[in-house]
């Protein structure tokens, strides 16, 4: 357990004055993750909400070296930074221990940046990749991504007389990453601060690539009041829609099991207006299908964690 009162004594690596939406949990996640190491950190940020809102020229909220290159290439960019570090260290031009960290959204990770991420994982660069998964292209105005859940409304998965939101299930990216057999993979949530901090710390301490997929509720995209971000994230965890687990050198550990307190998915859906069509009686089959999918995925994680 990290003592928050001690943690609050540490320097902030992302300062105020950024223009993220009120209540967006992404910057809370960034603040917490960047406090999980005492080493200097270089951040690569994919195009997205965090990138545009924290660095509107001539202002930057970042107090650590930070680079944005493009949307789909943050893993390749950090590969280059890390390679430069290794080369300069070998030549004796640098001696300190530096950590390398990527922040990218689900668009920049699940979709357009997947190839770049896969390549960097396979090459084994020493870096931490944090996906801030807000389940859609929110920066461009709420379009569906492969991370958008089944049944969710977005501007490109509209609810109409025939189609009722997104027709496909959310991509299981954490498993895709796990298939690269990198030393550390985890799923986390801002609602579970201790768990997220512990995972970030482990990721920084890992030699080689580490990946953390963090659910990041989106006030305008998921459509809920701004003060509920952490509550919405907690319901995703308690419904087992977003299991908290980690894979250390191939070994699965389930970090949190709500047990009898597991809530039905509808309790998570009903808080978000992107799912409001699912509250209608005629759409109950969609909720049921999503519930079955969530249950199957949850059972699978539990089974993998038992071994």
């Amino acid at each position: 357990m990290v003592n928050l009162r001690q943690l609050a004594k540490k320097e902030e690596r992302l300062g105020p004055g950024h223009r993220m939406c009120p209540g967006c949990p992404q910057t809370m996640i960034v603040r917490l993750v960047t406090k999980a190491t005492d080493s200097p950190v270089v951040v690569a940020n994919a195009t997205g909400c965090l990138e545009v809102s924290t660095t509107i020229y001539p202002f930057s909220a970042w107090r650590v070296p930070w680079i944005h290159n493009a949307f789909e290439n943050s893993a390749a960019t950090i590969s280059g930074v890390e390679a430069a570090y290794k080369a300069l260290k070998k030549k004796g031009k640098i001696d300190k221990d530096v950590k390398f960290l990527v922040f990218a959204g689900d668009g920049g990770t699940y979709d357009i940046g997947l190839q770049s991420l896969s390549g960097a994982l396979e090459r084994g660069h020493n870096f931490v990749y944090v996906c801030l998964d807000n389940e859609g292209y929110m920066n461009t105005g709420i379009q569906r991504s492969s991370a958008t859940p089944f049944g969710a409304w977005t501007n490109t998965s509209q609810v109409g007389s025939i189609l009722k939101g997104k027709q496909e299930f959310k991509k299981d990216l954490t498993s895709v990453v796990a298939s690269h057999h990198i030393p550390y993979v985890a799923q986390a949530s801002p609602s579970n601060v201790q768990d997220l901090f512990k995972k970030a710390k482990k990721a920084f301490e890992t030699e080689g690539p580490a990946f953390i997929n963090v659910l990041a509720p989106c006030v305008p995209g998921w459509k809920y009041p701004s003060e509920q971000s952490m509550e919405i994230a907690r319901l995703a965890v308690d419904s087992c829609f977003w299991p908290l687990y980690e894979i250390e050198n191939g070994k699965y550990t389930l970090n949190y099991d709500p047990g009898e307190k597991k809530i039905p998915i509808i309790k998570w859906l009903e808080k978000q207006k992107r799912f409001r069509h699912l509250l209608k009686p005629e759409n109950q089959h969609i909720v049921e299908k999503l519930q079955q999918h969530v249950d199957a995925m949850w059972e699978n994680i539990k089974r993998l964690s038992e071994n």
């Binding site: 290159n69 290439n73 770049s116 896969s118």
Partner: peptide, 23 residues
């Protein structure tokens, strides 16, 4: 450090990262 990337897009992206890093 010879970085054998998975595409030219990543080749230029990694080169940008490496150059911005100071190498």
């Amino acid at each position: 450090e010879f970085v054998t990337v998975e595409s030219e897009h990543s080749a230029m992206s990694a080169t940008v990262g490496a150059s911005a890093a100071g190498s």
